[in-house]
Amino acid sequence: MGQVLDVVAPVFAIIAAGFLAHWRGMIGKAGIAGLNSFAFAVATPALLFASGTAGHSGGGWAGLVFFTAAFAVYGGVLLAGRWRGWSLRRSGPMALDATFGNTVMMGIPLILAAYGQQGLSILLVIIALHSLLLLTTATVVSELAQNAQARKWLLLRVSILGVMRNPIVMAVLSALVWSTLGLPVPDWLRRALNLVGAATPGVSLFCLGASLVGFNLAAGWRQMSVTVVAKLLLLPAMVFCLCRLLGLS
């Protein structure tokens, strides 16, 4: 229990600091938006590229397990919504809520704290495909919910191209190509990437806390309770069982 608190307590302390700073007006919306843009478009890509070219390997099986479970839950929520008589326009966002994790702002700091660089290298596989697979699927489902006659292949192509412009995805794919080609990263560049990337965990958590200001928990608690059960109980349980089945550590 003490080890868990050592990892989790600093994470939630920084989230609380971000919430309080924004709530008290110490940092306004423009400042938070700037910090968020820095974390998303500069610091995180630097960290992911540095990690992806550091020579660590692994994560393929972890990615397979995660996305197998994620799409099982995604489909399950859609089917449950159909059984309840919900429209695709309502059940589609719920399915995304139940499967799309905060792999960057929350995932990176937690993984770094618990498992270090080797853990982050494994997480890279999930981050690389996370938006590409889940957001593309959600976009297609959303468009079909609004227009059943929509051209599916055109939707798929546009969605994939949109996700590919994501700086997080581009950083991971660039690191994969760089490593595959065996290209060296100059020492000065790696030090620069590490310096900028080191800001990712703290800034991301701070912005995450600030984003909670004004969040109305009471407004959507019924729908939220469904997605919380699916996301924080069902999905992790499925991942755990699949990992045990495949003999993963």
Rank of each mutant, 00 (worst) to 15 (best):
G116T: 05
P201W: 03
W61D: 15
V141Y: 05
A148T: 14
A43I: 05
A80H: 10
D187Y: 09
A13T: 14
V172G: 04
T180H: 15
A138C: 03
A21E: 01
L189F: 06
R222E: 11
L217T: 13
S57N: 12
G76A: 08
F49W: 04
A33K: 11
F71Q: 08
A198N: 11
M224Q: 12
L48F: 02
V172T: 08
A219P: 11
T137A: 13
W86I: 00
S51T: 15
L120M: 10
G162H: 13
N36C: 07
L35K: 05
L232V: 12
V185N: 01
G209S: 03
G209R: 01
A210F: 04
M105A: 13
L124V: 01
G247A: 07
S87R: 13
P184Q: 03
R244M: 11
N194M: 11
G60F: 02
G58W: 09
T137P: 06
G63T: 03
N166R: 06
G63K: 02
L193N: 04
L47Q: 09
V229R: 02
D97K: 10
G60V: 04
A138T: 06
I14N: 06
V226I: 12
G209V: 01
T200C: 07
G31H: 00
P109G: 00
M105R: 09
W153D: 15
M106S: 08
V140P: 04
P93C: 02
L5G: 10
L195Y: 14
P201I: 00
T44F: 00
S159F: 04
G247M: 03
S37Y: 10
L120E: 04
T53W: 07
N36W: 03
V7C: 05
L144R: 14
V125G: 01
V4N: 10
V141Q: 09
V11L: 12
L112H: 06
G119R: 02
V158H: 14
T200F: 02
P184G: 03
G101D: 13
V141G: 02
L208P: 05
S179H: 09
A113E: 07
V196P: 01
V8I: 11
I126M: 03
K29I: 11
A13S: 14
V141L: 14
V65I: 14
L47I: 12
L64H: 10
D6H: 08
L212D: 07
V185Y: 04
L134R: 01
A69D: 05
V65T: 12
R222K: 15
C207N: 06
S51P: 08
L120H: 00
S57L: 11
